[in-house]
Simulated assay, not measured.
Amino acid sequence: MESSPRRDGTADHLSRRRFGQLAALGLAAGAGVVGLASPAAAAGTGGQIHYDRARRLAGEDPVLLALVRALTPDVSIPDFPDPPAPVKLFDDLAMLSVGFVHAMAVLTDDGIVLIDALRSAEDAENVIVPGLRELGADPETVRYVVVTHGHYDHFGGARYLADRYGARVLMSPADWDLVARTRPDDAPARDLEIADGQRLTLGDTTIHLHHTPGHTPGTVSPIFPVRAGSERHTAMLWGGTNPPETLTELRTYLSSIRSFRNRMRRAKVDVELSNHPVDHGLDRVEQLRNQPDGENPFVLGRRRTDRFMAVMSLMLRGRIADAEAAGDGN
């Protein structure tokens, strides 16, 4: 369907350690679990060679190191961080967050496409709506809500936005089914279904929506343009980070990484985004606030965004090796 500063070494070290903890929080929240690693993943030793390769590839890059920590088995869950104030990451992209989960608002000349809707109607009313107004955007122009996957902290505010503003809600068929099974009382009315590779166009902006199952059966990851002044960039948002538990699902997740990485290369993606603080994202938000005229920290460049996916691939290969070593044949 196509629809009408750098800092001194000490500060960097502390920041990476803090955001490794935040990463764990963001991953666990969506799945509603108390830890990241399944017993099978934690028990095996076969994955260590892949984890070590991922750490070497990450080097001293705080974004990649945060991802390594987020995907490392048996990470601990910290307290929830304080929610950041709403912020524009780019001229046409805003982040609205409750700390451990974010919604992204794509601002077009014909209205707003919201990517995810936080946890609840209260979040929509008290975070998304006033946050958009604070940034000079009109919440009444929210035309679409793209739900990346069917966990409560991503679709929770969608029904409110649909009922109040007439926004159309999009989700993959598999995750519409997931929501109907698991959270029927909180779910928005079943609306538009996302096909793999679908284009959603509003105004002068086209968002490409790709199926990336693994975190859930129907996780969706978007690729879309953003701008900062005269600069034009292409952004990706990986739709769901927490790895599944079974060997079959882990292999599906790895396949999704590979296919999406190829799509990123073809689209020349140079901006990495996440809907959880698994990527040093909240720290980069503060860097952006403190240095509004500096280089945008979300513009990683094409090679770093590709390395981001390479690190994720290695960490998933480690999870798969652990599951195989533990004898998980599912």
Score class of each variant (00 low, 15 high):
63 V>T: 08
220 V>S: 03
84 P>V: 10
190 R>S: 12
98 V>M: 09
258 R>D: 14
248 T>A: 15
219 T>A: 11
80 F>W: 01
306 D>A: 15
237 L>E: 04
199 R>N: 10
147 V>D: 03
59 G>I: 08
41 A>S: 08
127 V>K: 01
199 R>P: 02
232 R>N: 08
100 F>H: 14
166 G>D: 14
311 V>P: 01
281 G>R: 02
221 S>C: 13
54 A>R: 05
84 P>I: 06
310 A>Y: 05
204 D>H: 10
36 L>Y: 07
169 V>H: 08
142 V>L: 07
319 R>Y: 01
190 R>C: 12
219 T>E: 04
267 A>T: 10
180 A>M: 07
276 H>A: 15
139 P>W: 02
241 T>H: 13
140 E>V: 05
113 V>L: 13
238 W>T: 01
279 D>F: 11
239 G>N: 03
94 A>Q: 04
300 L>T: 02
47 G>C: 06
317 R>A: 10
202 L>V: 12
90 F>G: 00
50 H>P: 03
164 R>C: 04
294 G>M: 05
312 M>K: 15
280 H>M: 10
303 R>Q: 14
97 S>N: 11
241 T>N: 12
288 L>N: 05
226 V>L: 04
63 V>W: 00
255 S>L: 09
307 R>H: 07
253 Y>F: 15
102 H>M: 06
227 R>Q: 11
94 A>R: 00
151 H>F: 08
239 G>P: 02
188 P>V: 13
18 R>A: 14
160 Y>K: 14
266 R>C: 10
269 V>M: 13
182 T>D: 14
11 A>T: 13
